[in-house]
């Protein structure tokens, strides 16, 4: 694990343990827990590759693109305390470039599939009303693996992938639109350690409170 990955891991672990301890103290006399909710979030939007971009020097007529259209899915367990836990995956374009060398065109695309353990927390909890802004704002952080894929089209096609540790942080605003549905706008930073890739995304998401018990 890299230094960056270790740091993220310990910070998230600290957050989780602190919240669990606080919850245990608060709820020690409670007779009933819940309600619990399983929330599925899916959406898409625009991504911007925010790390340095490596392009081979021999390429001429170079065209680079840092923008892409990501799509992500997140499944979260919302317990009866503030810290939520879940998994996130999706498809995040990183960058692409094309150029010509010795009269032959070359094109490279790089994208990542995150598989992350995600912790999320609304900025407010029991205080305030349902309409309070703080209750609709949330922050998320996660760590896990990225499957980074590259596709080269030059003198043939080579499609390869590499697994790397990484992390993400996100902030979201959620607007209720029904009893079980909400829409959310989320900005998210995906960071891949081994390949030094990073993408900033802005996504519109549909939030479905799938099960409650």
């Amino acid at each position: 694990m890299t230094f960056r990955g270790r740091t993220s891991f310990w910070i998230i672990l600290t957050l989780l343990l602190t919240d669990l301890v606080a919850t245990a103290q608060t709820d020690s006399t409670a007779s009933k827990r819940g309600p619990y909710t399983l929330v599925i979030t899916a959406g898409g939007g625009l991504s911007y590759y925010a790390s340095h971009l490596g392009v081979p020097p021999p390429l001429e007529q170079l065209r680079m693109s840092r923008f892409g259209m990501p799509a992500t899915v997140r499944v979260m367990w919302h317990p009866d305390h503030r810290l939520r836990i879940g998994l996130e995956t999706g498809w995040v374009p990183m960058y692409s470039y094309r150029g010509v060398t010795a009269g032959e065109s070359a094109r490279v695309n790089v994208e990542a599939i995150p598989i992350l353990l995600v912790f999320s927390m609304p900025l407010a909890w029991l205080s305030g009303t349902e309409r309070s802004l703080a209750r609709r704002l949330s922050i998320s952080g996660g760590t896990g693996a990225y499957l980074v894929q590259s596709r080269l089209r030059y003198a043939g096609t080579v499609a390869e992938s590499q697994t790397s540790l990484g992390w993400m942080v996100a902030g979201a605003y959620t607007q209720p639109i029904g009893r079980r549905f909400r829409v959310a706008a989320e900005v998210e930073w995906f960071n891949v350690a081994a390949t030094e890739d990073a993408a900033f995304t802005a996504q519109l998401k549909l939030v479905w409170r799938a099960f409650t018990w």
Binding site: L59, A106, N109, E160
Partner: peptide, 21 residues
């Protein structure tokens, strides 16, 4: 950094000599 991943054995000499430094 050039975006290319995977085993070096999966690339031809032309691909490596042109795109990899």
């Amino acid at each position: 950094k050039n975006g290319l991943k995977g085993p070096i054995e999966d690339y031809t000499y032309q691909q490596l000599t042109t795109l990899v430094r």
